[in-house]
Design a binder for these strands. Structure first.
Ligand SMILES: Nc1nc2c(ncn2[C@H]2C[C@H](O)[C@@H](COP(=O)(O)OP(=O)(O)OP(=O)(O)O)O2)c(=O)[nH]1
Ligand SMILES: [Mg+2]
Ligand SMILES: [Mg+2]
Ligand SMILES: [Zn+2]
Length: 572
DNA sequence: GCCGTTTTCGGCCCGACTGTTTTCAGTCG
């Protein structure tokens, strides 16, 4: 798919136009186009051939033409044109905190600064002094910004940020000045990666709260500290921003600070058309404040139900809310079991007993034991006789439980040649069959898709695990025609997994939404190899909610009998 | 550059902080 390339090009055009001082609204349009294309689940070439490009909100005549040109010729003349005489390095300079397009352009014009090393040299030689609009403090700021830029890390998985934010909030609650406190930003929206951690607190003594914040354990660097806000870096490397507001502003501030930016802008536009004004301080009619202590005030004022944070990406949730058609999103308490877990029979650490004990503690009614299969030597995959033995063990153990069942399963390898690791005479003895790809990542898209489809068409295969194979911190997924996979899953009654492991989160939110729209059932599974990974089901719930899933779309909201029936149905 | 049941032209979210700013531009969230 060329989606990613085209989105990148529009983003670049926006950057360069900004540098050149072009109209900010036009720049915004390119940014918006870039974003909607990146979010698209359809292949943009397909949409172009059907002349449906301008149906996409944010894509008009101009951008549509540029897309078509790129698809036809592999080039976008607007891009080539604006990039003339501009270096990529110069664009990167704008990422330095405190350095915006105006300053970078000026430095380039006046001192011929192209990249970071030029800038550092110029600073060293004191060349910035005396330039228009640059004083000592500005220079100081740029030096700090460069340091911050050099040491800042990439976006991290929400799974890494999650424990950090829990720890910080628990710590700050010890300060009695804190009335209300909650995570906001991308973390509250459960976005798969977060750029920073945003926390909102309320109370009258902001200084005390910020003081607790910057002096808490784990802080390695204090980036800012004032009466109503603080910003630190913690030992995990991530930046944490705290804002403190008055109690009666908490709702409006939480709405603002949760974002997303695009969601906020869209809401504010609607408010404006209704003669209202929304800001982080409240909802206003003229001078009069008409709400803002509760978050839902903001949505109520616009005639909407409160939109769940996970949906707030400006991907149609505002329109749905206006029509009263928000989905009834799945919740953690709907989950009755975990559908992908490893024991010490393959590469996991827990015994069956330990797994069951923990599952029961989590309120589950069942747990799927899905150890690896024989081809996966590195993971100590089970051979036929070992799997048969495992089945016997589990059957024995199950007699001890009341209202809880360990389900017999395998995570069967889909081998590089497309064949499966067990024959039907083994598979028929299992309750659930999970299948997944662990090899041949570099194969052609057609080949990988073919392997996947073959597995999906096997009447014993119920769930395809980590369907794209991506690892958030390490690699893109393998090339697979996800549209085709979704289509065949829908036809065959095969479920797709949201793998909850923090570095996978695969399916992601947008594929998940797409699968649901196609009528594919979803399994939310942790793929836990240790007991202490089972909490990650919370991450998967976040992804599911971002994918607009309701409880009825998810097979592990089913009772054990209904789940078994779901699996058996395919065999008939 | 995009968009429209009050508009096909004239808008496009709103506010805080900083600096060398004398009335505001640039940057950020
Ligand atoms: N109204 C409005 N709100 C904004 C704007 N920029 C940021 N916000 C709000 C919404 C964001 O979710 C929130 C926190 O800002 P962040 O830069 O931390 O963004 P966010 O957490 O969404 O993403 P991140 O993962 O940190 O990159 O502030 C803006 O330009 N206008
Ligand atoms: Mg953030
Ligand atoms: Mg932030
Ligand atoms: Zn697994």
């Amino acid at each position: 798919m060329k989606n990613h390339e085209i989105a990148t090009l529009f983003g670049r055009i926006a950057d360069v136009l900004e540098l050149k001082g072009d109209d900010s609204f036009r720049i915004n349009s390119y940014r918006k186009a870039s974003r909607v294309i990146a979010d698209l689940t359809e292949d943009i070439e397909k949409l172009a051939s059907e002349e449906k490009l301008t149906d996409i909100p944010g894509i008009g005549k101009g951008t549509a033409e540029k897309i078509v040109e790129y698809i036809k010729t592999g080039k976008m003349s607007k891009y080539e044109e604006v990039m003339k005489g501009v270096s990529e390095e110069t664009i990167t300079l704008m990422q330095i905190p405190g350095l915006g397009p105006k300053t970078v352009a000026m430095l380039n014009r006046e001192l011929g600064i192209v990249g970071l090393s030029d800038l550092e040299n110029a600073l060293h030689e004191g060349k910035l002094k005396g330039l228009f609009g640059i004083g000592d403090k500005k220079i100081e700021n740029i030096i700090k910004g460069i340091e911050l830029f050099k040491t800042s890390q990439q976006r991290i998985s929400i799974g890494m940020a999650y424990p950090v934010v829990k720890r910080i909030i628990a710590g700050l609650r010890n300060n009695p000045e804190v009335k209300d406190i909650q995570a906001a930003g991308s973390l509250r929206r459960m976005k798969e990666t977060v750029g920073d951690i945003d926390i909102l607190a309320s109370g009258t003594n902001g200084a005390s709260i910020v003081e607790s914040f910057v002096s808490m354990n784990g802080v390695t660097q204090v980036l800012a500290s004032a009466d109503t806000k603080g910003s630190v870096r913690v030992e995990e490397g991530v930046q944490v921003d705290l804002r403190v507001v008055k109690e009666d502003e908490f709702g409006a501030a939480l709405q603002y600070f949760t974002g997303s930016k695009e969601h906020n802008i869209h809401l504010r536009e609607i408010a404006k058309k209704k003669g209202l004004k929304i800001s982080e301080y409240g909802i206003f009619k003229g001078e009069k404040k008409i709400g803002g202590s509760m978050e839902e005030d903001v949505y109520k004022a616009l005639g909407m139900n409160c939109i769940p944070p996970e949906l707030r990406e400006n991907r149609g949730e505002i329109e749905a809310a206006q029509l009263g058609k928000l989905p009834n999103l799945i919740e953690l308490s709907d989950i009755k079991g975990d559908l992908h877990n490893h024991s010490n029979w393959s590469d996991g650490t827990p015994t069956f007993e330990e797994m069951a004990e923990h599952a029961i503690k989590m309120g589950y009614k069942y747990l799927v034991v899905s150890d690896h299969s024989k081809s996966l030597h590195v993971a100590n995959g089970l051979k036929d006789d070992e799997l048969l033995e495992e089945i016997e063990e589990i059957d024995k153990l199950n007699k001890k439980f009341k209202g809880f069942t360990l389900l017999k399963a395998t995570e069967m390898d889909i081998k590089a040649d497309g064949s499966l690791d067990f024959l039907d005479n083994i598979l028929e003895k299992l309750d659930v069959v999970v299948a997944s790809i662990h090899s041949g990542f570099k194969q052609e898209k057609e080949k990988i898709t073919e392997r996947m489809i073959a597995a999906i068409c096997n009447p014993y295969v119920n769930i395809i695990a980590h369907p794209t194979g991506r690892l958030i911190s390490k690699r893109e997924g393998y090339e697979v025609d996800i549209d085709k996979v979704i289509e065949v899953c829908a036809e065959t009654g095969t479920a797709l997994e949201i793998n909850c492991y923090y570095d996978r989160l695969d399916l992601n939110d947008i594929y998940c939404r797409k699968a649901r729209e196609a009528g594919v059932m979803i399994a939310i599974s942790t793929d836990a190899h240790h007991i202490d990974q089972m909490w990650m089901i919370e991450l998967g719930i976040g992804i599911a909610r971002r994918g607009w899933l309701e409880a009825k779309d998810v097979i592990n909201t089913f009772s054990v009998d209904k789940l078994k029936a779901f699996c058996m149905k395919k065999r008939k």
